[in-house]
Amino acid sequence: MAANKVSIGSYEEDLQRLLAEERGQELAQRVKMVLAWIVLLLVLALLFSGLDVNLGFTRIKFIKLDIEFVKEYSPFIAEGALQTILISIASIILAMVLALTSALARLSNNPIAVAVSTFYISLIRGTPLYLQVIFFFMALPQMGIYLSGYWAGVIALGLNYGAYMSEIFRAGILAVGKGQHEAATALGMSPGQKMRHIVLPQALRMAIPPIGNEYIAMLKDSSLVSATGFVREVLWRAQRVGRANFRNLEALIVAAFFYWMLTLVFTAIQARIEARFEQGEREIKTISH
């Protein structure tokens, strides 16, 4: 009895020690990663520092920017960031709804639903996004439908990205193991319940990283909506003030900076969502152990 107690105690101590070690390693990894990021940022800053270094045997010149221009016009370009965010958030919501619906339709047994879904994906993926934006803005009025520049853009972007993301959802749904379907059926779930409670939660978890990718791509594609003439987002503003002042490079770099910031914010949000879904996965694993 006494020996037993000792062994349990040492087992727990070992476990605690191992866990602490693991946490320490994780922390060290994180610190190294952050340091590497800082170094890379410094290298990027050096590239645009405008420095002119004479090393004796050779001379290195870095890219020089007009800082006065950047200071003067950054606020004006930044105003477009709100437009960019509003367009891409509305579009991604529409795109997710369309993507999920068309993925489910594509995987259903209904031939009409499969036809509608495949036709939609084929037509939208096979035509340029610019045309789709102009279509919703300039062609629909002939049918008496007047969408504002903003909404024409949101619908075009939503439809376009919905078609691409549909394949992501389809891949996610197909990746859920056969055993999961069988287990759900064995528990007496209807096909609808199975989809809702078993398949989709797992499929979504797998779909999050590629959806994040699509969202970031959309953030930048939202600049096409400016062609309508009633939306003035980051890139449009940068190009206008850049051309007018002969400072295209500076203006585009300012725009790039804002896009990057938006991407960073979104990547952080994505990491949180991913962590939430992962949490569920871990709990299941613990229970099964």
């Binding site: 102009i134 803005f137 300039m138 009025p141 400016s226 062609a227 309508t228 003439g229 009633f230």
Partner: peptide
């Protein structure tokens, strides 16, 4: 003022947008 791309303006068929 509306600010569409120049080629959208010159093409006509403005759909009464401006």
């Amino acid at each position: 003022f509306a600010t569409p791309e120049w080629d959208v303006i010159t093409a006509g068929n403005w759909a009464d947008r401006w």
